[in-house]
């Protein structure tokens, strides 16, 4: 039986990585288009980020510094598990600092710290098809993309407004890429949508179970779907971070007792910790530095 050390760099064999890189390059060449690829069976379950892991594996070189986040945090169990996987199989350096990372694999968030040229952001995608819940058939949705037949997408938004007075999609909010493909940005909160377009980093999206890869090359236009008279609006909890006082970061709500007390903290743990280290302290921020670190 194969020994752990017998696995290739970053687990996948070179032939598979080349196949994935070809799909990535095609995706970069046709921004927003879902490229089918022969997703491999990974040693972690579908739904745990097998698509993102394969894309990351195909991008990694030994000199890379990898950051892995889930829900914005470096220390959630699945982020820890994926980071360990690459430490073990690729031996690359890892980091929690957004600015220091060359490759960032993420689930459900875009880091608060603006990304820079040369960085790669890899998203884990559960359902890559933005039309899926309007039309379950893959054969049909591919045709709809081919024809730019996106009327149905706007019907959904129309129905939201007629029923709720506003577009009632809070995450997984679809965007139109360079005026052509409607794309699913993965289940990031719509707060993060404005960071998709015009981003300096390469953004790659991997869906393992659904066997699709797609991409936003640097500085690509990605416009959140809306109506002229009901424009898209990014939103977040109307609070500042209770730990670092950031007024403009995406917040997790934490229930602190069973009497309805709660606090709001940055979902991006690296961002929050860096701010506190720089002396920004919120109302419930640690009086002693680093009290929340193990």
């Amino acid at each position: 039986m194969t020994d752990q050390t017998a696995y290739n760099f970053a687990y996948l064999d070179e032939q598979t990585k080349r196949m994935i890189r070809r799909a990535i390059l095609k995706g970069v060449a046709i921004p927003g288009y879902q490229v089918p690829f022969a997703s491999r069976e990974m040693p972690m379950p579908y739904g745990w980020g097998t698509g993102g892991v394969q894309v990351t594996a195909a991008c990694l070189v030994p000199e890379d510094r990898l950051k892995v986040i889930d829900q914005g945090a470096d220390d959630t169990t699945n982020a820890v598990s994926i980071r360990r996987f690459f430490q073990r199989t690729a031996g690359v350096e890892v980091t929690e600092a957004t600015a220091d990372a060359t490759v960032i694999q993420t689930r459900h968030r875009i880091p608060e710290t603006p990304l820079t040229e040369g960085q790669i952001l890899v998203y884990q995608v559960p359902i890559p098809e933005p039309l899926r819940f309007l039309e379950p058939r893959e054969t049909e949705t591919r045709k709809m993309h081919e024809l730019e037949d996106y009327g149905l997408m706007h019907v959904k938004l129309y129905e939201d407004i007629s029923r709720h007075g506003q577009i009632a999609t809070a995450y997984d909010y679809p965007v139109k890429v360079e005026g052509r493909y409607v794309m699913d940005p993965s289940p990031i909160p719509k707060f993060d949508n404005p960071k998709l377009g015009g981003n300096a980093a390469i953004q790659l999206f991997g869906a393992g179970r659904e066997q699709r890869i797609y991409a936003l090359p640097p500085y690509t236009q990605a416009i959140s779907l809306d109506f002229d008279d009901y424009p898209f609006a990014a939103s977040k909890a109307d609070h500042s971070c209770d730990l670092c006082a950031a007024p403009d970061s995406y917040l997790d709500e934490v229930i602190t007792d069973d009497q309805g007390s709660r606090m709001f903290v940055c979902s991006d743990t690296d961002f929050c910790a860096s701010r506190r280290a720089a002396g920004h302290i919120g109302p419930m921020g640690a009086p002693r530095a680093g009290a929340d670190v193990e």
């Binding site: 996106y150 009327g151 706007h154 008279d229």
Partner: peptide, 11 residues
């Protein structure tokens, strides 16, 4: 729907 399919974007 047909209006939106041909590009109408004003609710």
């Amino acid at each position: 729907e047909r209006l939106m399919a041909v590009g109408a974007r004003h609710y």
